[in-house]
């Protein structure tokens, strides 16, 4: 029943996104054209990747507020590396980005796992630290497009079947995370650790270690986004992606991932991101100022939370009723 509810919820998001596209394209012809849709998807790719990392963390009853700072630090690091050593192959740079991201994620994870500090406190701290590290690393300077190499800048922009490599990267990550969540021990442990930590411990799952790996996963994806971000915007500075951690949380919440942990799906996180992506891309088209955009995004998030809370409550009622009923059924049987 709960599963159906979420399937219903995901369908609902698909419908809402479709309706939005319809409305916007009636105001601005061409909005729903394939090339513009591919644009929107490409534009939302980084958010999708970050939201998937955030999802794994939120599913374990934690939160990672440091993802955007991770993007900034890793982005700065690889941009400077690229500028200093133009000969380094891109594959190595991407690997380094993944590695730096993973280390930053592991630092969060270790604090949460070994010292038992609440993740919101840990990542609130590392959020500032990682961005400070980006400042120290760069001395406050910028890395501009002309300092970056051609492959560094252009590879994510290469079109393949009409979609840039950046978009394809998001699709590959979605597929990998889907497999991790549904087909691996780690994925199952993540759901169990968030759904009922005590029961998970009693079933032999190391909840702390599972959280650690969720943070490593989130950090690794943030590291990847660090490269993708500086490449896409062709610039690296300390304040890139400022506040973007909240977008990743918002995408998860809109996608139906319970902030209490244990409930949520890859499809939800992706749809939540796409929803935000469509709104962001559409509002300028229909002449709404960036400030109202923020207010609208905020309103949508609150609406999604209310919707979630109502669903939970309704589910509670169903369970109460079922209990009363089954109590008696058992009595009769």
């Amino acid at each position: 029943m709960i599963k159906q509810l979420f399937k219903f919820r995901e369908m609902l998001l698909v419908v809402i996104i479709a309706v939005l596209l319809g409305v916007f394209s009636s105001r601005s012809p061409g909005f729903a054209s394939p090339s513009n849709l591919s644009n929107i998807f490409n534009d939302t790719s980084i958010l999708i990747i970050l939201a998937l990392g955030q999802m794994t963390v939120i599913l374990t009853k934690s939160i990672d507020l440091s993802v955007a700072a991770n993007v900034a630090f890793t982005g700065m690091a690889v941009a400077m590396l690229n500028a200093a050593h133009p000969g380094l192959p891109l594959a190595l740079i991407v690997l380094i980005a993944l590695g730096i991201g993973a280390i930053l994620g592991a630092i969060n994870g270790l604090f949460v796992w070994k010292l038992g500090i609440p993740s919101i406190v840990v990542t609130l701290g590392t959020l500032t630290i990682y961005r400070g590290m980006a400042f120290v690393l760069s001395g406050g300077g910028w890395v501009n497009a002309h300092q970056m190499t051609e492959p560094f800048l252009q590879t994510p922009r290469q079109l393949f079947l009409g979609l840039p490599v950046l978009g394809w990267t998001a699709i590959v990550i979605v597929a990998i995370i889907y497999i991790v969540m549904s087909r691996t021990f780690l994925g199952r442990a993540i759901y169990a650790s968030g759904g009922n930590p005590t029961a998970a411990v009693y079933a032999g799952i190391d909840v702390g270690r599972t959280r650690f790996f969720a943070f490593v996963l989130s950090g690794t994806l943030a590291g990847l986004c660090g490269y993708l971000w500086v490449s896409r915007y062709a610039v690296a500075y300390v304040d890139i992606a400022a506040g973007f951690e909240l977008d990743s949380v918002a995408a998860c919440v809109i996608g139906g991932i319970s902030t209490l942990g244990g409930i949520g799906s890859v499809a939800g996180a992706v749809l939540g991101s796409l929803f935000l992506g469509v709104i962001k891309n559409a509002l300028p088209v229909i002449n709404i100022s960036p400030f109202s955009q923020m207010a609208i995004s905020g309103g949508v998030i609150i609406a999604a939370v209310i919707f979630n809370a109502r669903q939970e409550r309704r589910r509670g009622r169903i369970i109460l009723r079922d209990r009363g009923a089954s109590e008696t059924i058992e009595g009769i049987a």
Partner: peptide
């Protein structure tokens, strides 16, 4: 009730939870 089951997970995933070592192969369920 509180320590035994992960209520959001399906029945079969709850039953297999402590036995996943046996029901999975090279890390895949």
């Amino acid at each position: 009730g509180r320590h035994g089951a992960v209520l959001q997970l399906p029945i079969y995933q709850n039953i297999s939870l402590p036995s996943l070592g046996r029901t999975s192969r090279s890390g895949f369920l």
